[in-house]
Amino acid sequence: MILIYSIESILLTGAWIGCFIAIFFIPRKKLDKAALIFLTTQFFTWILGLIVVQYGWLEYPVREFSKANATSFLFEFLILPIISIFFILNYPIHKTLEVRILYFFTIISVFTLIEFLIERNTMIIKYHSWKWYWTWISMSLVIYMVMVIYRWFYKQKRIFSI
């Protein structure tokens, strides 16, 4: 490998560092709730990531643990769980329905856009039959399911509402 500091390795290293910094921004009082959200998210992403790669819908040409694993360990085990932590802990549950829908829509769309740009410009992820809106749908579903489990776990009301 001639070009060691490729755009991929810069992005991946930055993401690892960013994730570890983000952990320190979790409020200490909510550390147990954050742990639950983290663990629940990785339960879903582990199996979904495997299915998606197994059927060849997308691939991760540049990844960590490339010998053992063809899925993106970083995305499934750190990035998405950490997004999910901040998403759910800051969810505007007492605001109106419009605000909640806007919150959900904006954040998921931003991350879909980021993934789309990464797909276009780098070798970190490549879509085959995958489309950007599948990212949007799958990410919303995972976060919604985690939110439902979270509310059930802490015995909150209206666990299925958006």
Partner: peptide, 24 residues
């Protein structure tokens, strides 16, 4: 994943042969 990556174990028969070298 770490053990497989370091070559300590292998899973010849597994559930997702294309997606991972790890038994599921």
């Amino acid at each position: 994943i770490l053990l497989v990556e370091l070559g300590k174990i292998e899973f010849p028969v597994r559930e997702f042969p294309r997606a991972t070298q790890v038994g599921f």
